[in-house]
Design a protein around this nucleic acid. Structure first.
Lengths: 410, 410
DNA sequence: GTGGTTTTGTTTAGTAGCGGCACAAACTCA
DNA sequence: TGAGTTTGTGCCGCTACTAAACAAAACCAC
């Protein structure tokens, strides 16, 4: 055609508008309800910094999308004046995210609604095949079954794996205690499984400790933190995660917070990384059992170590070993505090048990060995959510909806 | 009055609109010109992802604000078809930021325009008084003089200090080699000086290495990096900084990236932090001079160490000492890579000289000792900007304008 | 030269999200 | 029974954008 026709339909959409359009208040509003920070439209108004008219319109739109519920009857807060407000809550029959987790002992699948509430779970398998495609196919099958049973809409799927996940390829670099090949294309395999099962929405994959940190930040002990550091140990090794301004910091290639090789005991045992006395080999369950002089039993290292700590802390041998681990963990955390300067630290796995065994000692070590910790000190808390990695996996799938509810669901 | 009057003027403005209003494309557009990524309106259109109409309007508005210049005559790029575009550039007579720097050898003041261009400098003083108010008063006086001479509008002032700056108080915790008291309220003192001198705009204070990293990210070797790690040494001690998504990451209380106490030599010399073999005492200029067996001279440790490295690298004693420092620096950087996973590392001070002395060796150590570095490795570069701390201090003052040009200047 | 193509800039009209405002509703307290 | 207080809604207008047509300034082929 002519020049006009050529101009027509110009590819302005190619460099897809980086200035987000659409109701920009919709996402933040949903996030506030999602994280339980907006019980009513009145506080939504205040939190968003918009007019009541806007907050009302936004809430109505979220309700129309089937994401939140606005109580029909107003409910007055005790001892408050003025017109009572209608409570906002997560829609009970709204969409869900399909969450999956693979770990050394098996796998799990669940449906997770807004607010991080686990809606349904599938009984987990206890063994793990050496073929990722096999395992992920089974998890997704279990998840698909849950979706069929509940009949709920799915916004997407998330997977938590006990491995560093390299970006942007999505490969599992060190699948801990899984018989999986290092470098398996877990993200791609998982996405294929999701697609093949006919499940709607995008698929995401992340490291389990990262996802646990994300879940704790939104729904658990990390709520309200701006710079949240999470450190946890499973059976072997130590994982870390950092949540900055509500977003997971995974580094440029997804490999940040590999905290296991901080030196916490210069004369300590050799580590496979070539150094010695690393956090990894000095503070994991095996290190604890070895220090106490107990043979690993069949129940799993973490379970065994926790039981030992809980039941025999009065035993001097146990106590001395625990204190040594606490001191080394504290040294590692202090190093991280010097580098990251978080405003809260959350511990999981055996580290959580060590914290609970002697909170004061751990805090003292961290405060003493971090440069500026003396004046104040970082709060150190235990994880509070059950299945936090699973909930975190769901958060990944929910994220596009939280960012742009209309775009993701409309 | 009545109910209506009470409703009138409701304090919606109190929780000041968190959803930014106003021309939201104005800030990003200015930032693109500022960082040299938008030479014409056409690329501005593409980079912002808006229509040509919007990009044109935004550019016109920035020109009207006196911030950028749009060439009257179009200039065709070589070998390009179509209508030639008008070049966009930073306004040559536009506003400036007042930048100040205090260091062990004295202080400096300068005016810095958009684009990080130093417009005017004041001859620096060579000695530093023990009273911060005295010193900062003198710097600001020098800066005010520059403003009077050039007659340019001032958007604000920024100060770089060789100390960790605690948030939110703005106190200098460890003013290295200044006779200042630890914990001096530098931010407040500086703001007072700026106000008293009758200088327009807000005042900011930051750590010099942080500000150097910020400047390098916007105008130097760090351009385009998403996760930029910067490590530098002055005369004594080591400083670090991290720029994430274009913003300085200073941690929850401004004390992040205190990287000096990573263990890089378990059997090394004792450090004042209580440990031994810290990066701080193993890789700074004094460590190098000591390793070579040279007495510190009067010219300053950094200058002396650099000269030694440049002029006598053939000398086996110098070379062996340098290689030991390189290995330890590499070990420290590897630790940081494991934790932060940056996509680029920039080195300053003596570390830069060590990098230039044996680039290959340093990269090899970092790749070998970082967990995933073997496959690829992080690019390690030298600082490229002169006076990067000074330019970074100006960036602080420019930031409000970059965020909201109309709000800051209109 | 002439005409067609490509890229850039501008004008005009239309739209969507939000602020401002008035009003209404639902409670407490005196 | 009001008066005060807080919450929710309808309406109008502003503004920053998009969409689309037009205009301008270069190139090329003939």
């Amino acid at each position: 055609m002519n020049g006009k026709a050529a101009t027509r339909g110009e590819a302005h959409l190619s460099a897809r508008t980086r200035l987000e359009r659409g109701r920009t208040a919709l996402g933040p509003a949903l996030e506030l309800v999602h994280t339980g920070r907006a019980p009513t439209r009145a506080v939504l108004t205040a939190e968003l910094g918009v007019t009541r008219a806007t907050a009302g319109a936004v809430a109505a739109e979220l309700e129309a999308l089937g994401l939140i519920r606005i109580d029909a009857k107003p409910s007055a807060a005790a001892g408050s004046q003025g017109r009572p407000s209608h409570r906002l809550s997560v829609a009970e029959t709204g969409p869900v995210a399909l969450a999956a987790q693979v770990h050394a002992d098996g796998f799990r699948a669940a449906l997770v609604g807004l607010g991080g509430r686990i809606v349904a779970t599938a009984p987990g398998c206890e063994t793990i095949d050496a073929d990722p495609a096999q395992v992920l196919g089974s998890v997704i099958e279990a998840g698909a079954q849950l979706l069929r049973e509940t009949g709920r809409r799915c916004v997407g799927a998330g997977l938590a794996v006990p491995s560093a996940v390299a970006e942007p390829e999505g490969t599992a670099l060190n699948p801990l205690h899984l018989a999986w090949p290092a470098g398996a294309q877990v993200r791609e395999i998982f996405a294929d499984c999701v697609r093949n099962a006919g499940i709607e929405g995008p698929a995401f994959t992340g490291n389990d400790v990262n996802l646990a940190a994300l879940a704790e930040h939104r729904h658990g002990a990390g709520r309200g933190a701006r710079d949240l550091l999470c450190v946890a140990t499973g059976h072997r090794g130590v994982g870390g995660a950092l949540v900055l301004d509500g977003r997971l910091h995974t580094g440029s290639s997804g490999l940040a917070l590999e905290v296991g090789h901080l030196t916490v005991h210069p004369e300590g045992r050799p580590c496979y990384c070539g150094s010695r006395g690393c956090l990894d080999v000095e503070t994991d369950p095996l290190a604890f059992l070895t220090a106490v002089g107990v043979e690993p039993g069949p129940e799993g290292l973490l379970v065994q170590a926790r039981a030992l700590l809980a039941e025999r802390y009065a035993d001097p041998a146990v106590r001395i070993a625990a204190e040594a681990l606490i001191d080394r963990l504290g040294l590692g955390l202090a190093g991280l505090v010097n580098i990251l300067n978080p405003d809260r630290i959350i511990l999981g796995g055996l580290h959580r048990s060590l914290l609970e065994a002697d909170h004061e000692r751990l805090c003292a070590v961290v405060a003493d060995r971090s440069l500026w910790g003396r004046s104040g000190g970082v709060p150190i808390l235990a994880c509070t959510l059950d299945h936090n990695s699973l909930v975190g996996a769901a958060e990944l799938a929910w994220q596009p909806v939280l960012d742009d509810p209309l775009g993701a669901l409309g």
